[in-house]
Every structure is written in structure tokens, then in C-alpha cells.
Design a protein around this nucleic acid. Structure first.
Lengths: 171, 171
DNA sequence: CAGTGTGTTCAGATATATCTGAACGCTCTT
DNA sequence: AAGAGCGTTCAGATATATCTGAACACACTG
């Protein structure tokens, strides 16, 4: 019991920290906290439990989840005989995060390229400088692509993988 | 003259775009715009010209510059006989950006590690999951370190490199 | 078919980061 | 030594992103 309480405190602390990390990454804090809760729990978590566990409204959970789903970081699961939606980390959650980072880097680069394309031919010095800048984003992009190969899959909860699979209907 | 006007429009458009890019990266928009102006101009730009060119107060320039200086992205230059401060991109500006990204990734990882260290021994499943999460940041960190080798130096303005160097006192 | 529980949406409230204007200290000039 | 110009700081204004509560549509239950 003592350990269980300690674990709960650690979980809440972890969730709070990941909220800050997410905010530093330009993500909504709550999205980071939902993700953190799913990482910590390992097994599927019900929509309502997310709201309760994070002490926020269901509306906030709804929008946080939409963002995480759009990015392919989490999966929604329907259980037969249960009207609530459940969520768990996507099997390739970390690879998906990397893909998102790559996409963001490419968008940044293309903003530079847009200006390069419009430069008059004689503006060679400016073009060189902007291309060096774009090259930076290109280098980051390439590095992240290499990282995709090294990123491992999230660990599933052991108990979870022993359950019968036919009670879940993944969407 | 027609070309000169067009270039000015392109510059303003570029600066506006880079402000948005910076904001997406979790940086203040103005820091991105100051950086963009220095990239575009290539040569040193006076403090006052930054404020005028970006249509913001000198206070804003001051704080934007502090951030960029702290990160090692720009250099402050004192010219003999001129009381204004001048700024240009650091020689290793893009490498510095990469280093900042690495540092941010490491900070994120250490937030996870802080929880891992406090976990009781028997929480093996949770530990495995958090370590997989931390491994993601580790992979990104490693990839960015590789990128450092590939990131090139910003191009200097050609005219600039022909000027006598003894009129500048870099700090 | 009314009632309950579910997730979504959206206008408005809230919190947060960002920018400004004024005051300040400093240096150089005269 | 007074004045002008410079960059910095900070309280307050502003803008923006984020969260909430209420209304809604839908599905299942009794």
C-alpha cells in the first residue's frame, strides 16, 4: 500500500514534468500530460479516467486526444459492451513523433525555399546565405530520418498482451 | 531601382515567414525576425536599424538580442568611433542552433530519468516503458549530434570580408 | 420512447507569453 | 560638468494560446 501510494505520487510528478516538456516543444501542455499518462499506465485508459486522472474537463481531453490521434501517437479502442472509448499508445508512437519532427523541419525549410525561388537572378549573395540557412534545416531533416531507424517501439503492458484480443476492436 | 524595391519586399516577406517559423519552434517571434534580418543582410546591422527595420521598440530588440546572444547565434560588434552596437550572425550560427536543440532534447530526457531514478525496484514494467520513452530522446539527441558534423557555416557578405578588419572590435 | 451516458464543438473565460513606454545608468562629446 | 545618444530593465498593456462549461448529436438501456 505504501508502495502504491508512492507510485501514484511518482506518476503525478511524471505527468506534471511531461506537461512542461510538451510545452517547451510547442505542444499544448495537456496533450503532453495525456501522452505521459498513457506511457506510465501502459494499458488502455478510458476517456473518463483521463479526465479524472488529470483533473481537467472532458472537453480538454477531447481536443488533446484529437491532436495526439492526428499525429498518430495514440490509438482509440472500442471495447465490446463498454460505451466508453479507451486509448493506448500507438505501436509506433516514437517513430510517429520523429515523423512529426521531420515534417515540421521540412515545413520550415520550405518557407525559406519560397523566398529563394522569388529572388532575382542577380541577388547571388542573398541566395547563397538563404541556401546556407535552408541547408541547416536539410541537415536536421536528414539526421532525424536516420533517427527513425534507431527509435524503438514503446513497451506494452505485460498483462495486456496476455489478455484475449477478441474483446478489443481497434479503429 | 525596380529590383531594389522588389528585394525589400522579399526581405520583409522572408522576415515575416521566419517569425512564424521561430514561433512554431517555441521561440519568440521577434528573435526569429532579428535572426532572419541578419541572415538576409549578411553584413553587420546596427541596433537602431534593427528596431527601425522590424518596426518594434528598442526594448524588444534588446531582449531578442539577449536571447540570440545567449544561444551563441549572433555576435555583437563595436566599431571604433561609432557608439551604436552592431550585430551579425555568429560564424557557427547553425552549429549553435543544433547545439541548442541537443541541449533541449537532453533536458527532456533528464526529466524522464528523474522519475526513473525514483521508481521502486519492483516497478519493472513502468521502468521499461519510461526507459523506452527516454530512449526516444536519446535517439534524437544522437541524431542531432551527427547532424552537427554536416551543418555548414553561414555565408558572409562578400563585400564585408574585403573590408579592413582593424575597424571592428568583436566582443 | 424517454432517460442516461458518451464524445464533440464552440463561445467565452483564463492564463501565459510577448511587446511597449518610461525611467535608468552608462559613455562619449562639448 | 551638462547634455545627447545608447542599451537595459521592468511594470503594465496587449495579444495569443489554452481551458472550461453549456449545448448538442449520437447510441444504448430500460
Amino acid at each position: 500500500m505504501d508502495t502504491a501510494l508512492q507510485i501514484d505520487d511518482l506518476r503525478d510528478d511524471f505527468i506534471a514534468r511531461m506537461g512542461v516538456v510538451a510545452a517547451n516543444d510547442g505542444m499544448p501542455r495537456m496533450s503532453g500530460q495525456v501522452f505521459a499518462m498513457l506511457v506510465f499506465e501502459g494499458e488502455e485508459v478510458a476517456f473518463g479516467d483521463l479526465a479524472k486522472g488529470l483533473s481537467v474537463s472532458r472537453a480538454t481531453i477531447s481536443t488533446s486526444i484529437r491532436l495526439l490521434e492526428e499525429r498518430g501517437l495514440i490509438r482509440r479502442i472500442n471495447k465490446a459492451g463498454d460505451r466508453q472509448d479507451y486509448f493506448k499508445l500507438a505501436d509506433d508512437a516514437y517513430a510517429a513523433m520523429t515523423r512529426c519532427a521531420i515534417a515540421a523541419t521540412r515545413r520550415s525549410k520550405s518557407e525559406i525555399d519560397a523566398t529563394i525561388d522569388k529572388l532575382p537572378d542577380e541577388a547571388t549573395a542573398v541566395r547563397d546565405r538563404l541556401q546556407a540557412f535552408a541547408g541547416f534545416y536539410e541537415a536536421i531533416s536528414t539526421a532525424l530520418e536516420d533517427a527513425t531507424l534507431r527509435v524503438s517501439q514503446p513497451k506494452h503492458d505485460t498483462a495486456q498482451s496476455l489478455r484475449p484480443a477478441d474483446t478489443e476492436i481497434e479503429q
